[in-house]
């Protein structure tokens, strides 16, 4: 095997120059002469267009609810700005766009759309749930079999596919769900729909039967899951859930989360 750097100066310079030219050139727009002679040919635009289109298509596929909310033209224009500074780091584009919600959060034209970033995060959660590792789903019977006095020390581990989000001001689940469904009519401005109840909402995504599903969740359930995700005990999780909502029904809360397939295992404290 040769040394990775050995003798590659010519090819390396070609690739540095070509890669820069795909997005306009160096810091001062300058190009090396042999690269400038390629950019001057009409065929160079094919590479520029293909690279940009491939990245934008992947983002649009990964953020369908965002795309639906803002429309095709707005989405692709914003995505083109994102792509210039955030080329994919991996050749698999299935999870491209991890930084896109934060980009939207700092994107001036998105400022008037307070629901856009939360919806982008739920789109991202869907992708992560979709691609997560296979794991067994914890059976509610196993939890029911634990003696009550030991339950407080038990630790529930969220399933690899479980993702949840809570928003205190935006009906995040309703907006996302209406814009995620492929069969929803295009062009409907969902946020203007009269029946939209502008209130706090949460959503839990899981993959219990092989495909991604979701249920509405309350603040207490999200607080409960947050504690489980950092390895806290059931007693701590219950405490947080009660802090989030004083009259939370813990038995019902656990039944809902277990029913949705939110956990993969139960460990009893020693």
């Amino acid at each position: 095997m040769t040394d990775p750097g050995h003798g590659s100066a010519g090819l390396r310079e070609f690739q540095d120059g070509f890669a820069q030219a795909l997005f306009g050139g160096g810091p001062d727009g300058a190009l090396r002469p042999e690269i400038a002679s390629l950019v001057a040919q009409s065929g160079f635009a094919v590479y520029r267009n293909t690279v940009m289109k491939g990245c934008i298509d992947a983002l649009q596929a990964n953020f369908p609810a965002v795309s639906r909310l803002v429309g095709d033209e707005w989405f692709r224009a914003a995505a083109a700005i994102f792509v210039r500074d955030n080329l994919p780091r991996r050749a698999s584009l299935l999870d491209y766009g991890g930084e896109f919600p934060d980009f939207l959060g700092a994107f001036e034209p998105a400022r008037a759309l307070p629901y856009l970033v939360p919806v982008a995060r739920v789109d991202r959660h869907w992708t992560q749930a979709h691609c997560a590792a296979e794991e067994p789903t914890l059976d509610a019977q196993l939890v029911a079999a634990v003696p009550p006095q030991e339950l407080g020390r038990a630790v529930l581990t969220p399933h690899a596919s479980a993702r949840w989000a809570w928003h205190s001001e935006v009906p995040i689940r309703t907006i996302w769900e209406r814009n995620r469904a492929a069969e929803a009519p295009a062009g409907v401005s969902t946020t203007d729909a009269p029946e939209l109840d502008w209130r706090a909402e949460g959503v839990l995504l899981t993959r219990p039967g092989g495909s991604v599903e979701w249920i509405p969740v309350a603040a207490g359930e999200c607080a409960f899951l947050d504690v489980c995700a950092r390895g806290g005990t059931l007693a701590e999780a219950a405490q947080r859930a009660l802090e989030a909502k004083v009259d939370v029904d813990l038995a019902r809360l656990m039944a809902r989360l277990l029913g949705a397939g939110a956990f993969t295992r139960l460990d009893l404290g020693s």
Partner: peptide
């Protein structure tokens, strides 16, 4: 072709000059 370079991926099949150097690199 090439696509990943210096940690970034460009979704396309980009060309090279077919030199002795690129031949050795590709073979490796």
């Amino acid at each position: 072709a090439w696509s990943t370079w210096r940690g970034s991926y460009r979704p396309d099949l980009l060309p090279i000059p077919r030199t002795a150097e690129s031949l050795a690199r590709l073979a490796d």
